[in-house]
Design a protein around this nucleic acid. Structure first.
Length: 425
RNA sequence: GGGGAGUUUCCCGAGCGGUCAAAGGGGUCAGACUGUAAAUCUGAUGGCAUUGCCUUCGCAGGUUCGAAUCCUGCACUCCCCA
């Protein structure tokens, strides 16, 4: 069943700027229209910052259209200056290759459950054969320098010390050509992206008009930022990635659980497909009883399922239960390594447990939970040292065979949330 | 080229011969409170060690019983006048 995509976007606060809304609506009134968004393969995994665009494409599919995800194999070689304050480091072809593969897989995985007509394309496929002179004549000719210089992405960089290289300056030509090419090849006439993409999108629309006399459309959505002004998905320990090898489902889940009240509602609206009525309901409940954190739970659940599937969600939940509750003693080695998958672990010789045993201070230091033995001692004295979730207050405490959970493992913790695994082999 | 100011422990910043591992603030870590939040409060914050020991105050020397503190040289930073 299709519904009006534009109305849906507006209701969810996803429209920052758009070309003529009436024309857009009209074009989208026919089912199976193709709508594209681009992803730069700057890493081998997408991160939380890409979720808006990804979910946008899901909504396209849900609305009965066909999402086109462009992975920028060609543009990735150049680097998009939009939203950047300095020049990018160029990626090697091998890195790029790996990134394209990784990002493409993730996009397919997330879009798969929204519809089966999903297109993932790589602009290197059509850019590769294009000669430089040919490109300058056919595409470059249609770009007045005055307009290019007026784009925010270029202007802000020109005013800075580092300036902008010719390479990055040319980026918008490539993206503009992508749009025209996709309109030729797939009859794709709508491009969506973050608000920083407006300049690139309009460049493509302009080129479509000049080259093909064709009406192309564009929508940008507001960049999702947190109420404290920082970027969504950035934490002290780095970005939150979609790849479970980089960010485990547990940490992904926890990121959303820990979100401020002020941000949670907005994320639910923009990043999930939870019906509007339910979101309003959650808003009310949150105002009445913020401590329940229903919104965060729902959000974490939806997104973890979307990115990591039911199995990922289940393991994140199980880990959460253990991390914040309870008894570890009853678990076996396999369950432990499953739950504490992304917790740093350290191996000790089995013999260190014999006799007097291994000083806890040593273990905390070796696992990285404490920088130095002094710091470890301090943590314990202040009540922040735990073995298998049980507080230990004696700084001279030694670990022995009796402390093992399962047959060879033991769980150390410093403070509320820092865990480490000690294996004795 | 001339004149002046500075370089302190993760950061900012006091200290100007012994009581200095070095005030204060920030950050960080831990605890309490709480909603696995925010704010707040408490404690800790060079290293090693069960009283104590060792290494730090730009670098290298020197004076002294004793220096982050005084002297000499070197390096770097900043300001003012040309």
């Amino acid at each position: 069943m299709s519904y009006d995509l534009v109305t849906e976007f507006e209701a969810r606060g996803l429209v920052h700027q758009s070309t003529d809304a009436a024309a857009l609506r009209e074009w989208l009134a026919t089912p199976s229209r193709r709508v594209y968004a681009g992803f730069d393969p700057t890493a081998d995994s997408l991160h939380v910052g890409h979720l808006v665009a990804l979910v946008l494409l899901r909504r396209v599919a849900r609305a009965g259209h066909e999402p086109v995800a462009l992975v920028g194999g060609a543009t990735g070689m150049i680097g998009d200056p939009s939203g950047r304050s300095d020049e990018r480091n160029l990626l090697s072809p091998a890195e790029l290759e790996a990134n394209i593969a990784g990002v493409g897989r993730q996009i397919r995985a997330v879009l798969a459950s929204a519809g089966d007509r999903v297109h993932v394309v790589n602009n290197a496929d059509w850019m590769r054969g294009v000669g430089y002179l040919e490109f300058l004549r056919d595409v470059g000719k249609h770009f007045p320098l005055s307009q290019m210089l007026a784009k925010d992405s270029v202007k802000s960089r020109l005013e800075r010390d580092g300036g902008i290289s010719y390479t990055e300056f040319s980026y918008m030509l490539l993206q503009a050509w992508d749009f025209v090419h996709l309109s030729d090849a797939l009859d794709c006439r709508v491009q969506i992206g973050g608000s920083d993409q407006w300049g690139n999108i309009t460049a493509g629309i302009e080129l479509g008009r000049r080259l093909r006399s064709r009406d192309l459309h564009g929508i940008t959505c507001p960049l999702l930022t947190k109420s404290d002004g920082t970027k969504m998905g950035k934490t002290a320990s780095g970005a939150i990635w979609l790849d479970p090898k980089r960010t485990s489902p547990y940490r992904f889940y926890q990121y959303w659980i820990n979100l401020d009240d002020a941000d949670a509602g907005r994320c639910l609206l923009r990043l999930t497909e939870v019906p509007l009525g339910e979101i309003t309901d959650l808003d009310t409940r949150r105002a009445a009883n913020p401590a329940a954190r229903d919104t965060q739970k729902r959000l974490a659940e939806e997104l973890t399922r979307l990115v990591h599937g039911e199995a990922g969600l289940a393991s994140a939940r199980q880990a959460t239960e253990i991390f914040f509750g309870a008894e570890i003693a009853s678990l076996d080695d396999a369950a432990l390594s499953e739950i504490f998958a992304d917790v740093p672990s350290h191996e000790f010789p089995r013999a260190s447990l014999d006799g007097e045993g291994l000083p806890l201070v040593e273990a905390l230091k070796a696992t990285g939970l404490a920088q130095t033995a002094s710091a470890a001692r301090r943590t314990i004295e202040q009540g922040g040292g735990y073995v298998n979730n049980r507080r230990v207050t004696d700084p001279a405490h030694r670990l022995t065979v009796g402390d093992l959970v399962g047959s060879s493992t033991l769980v150390l913790r410093s403070g509320k949330k820092s865990y480490a695994i000690a294996r004795f082999v």
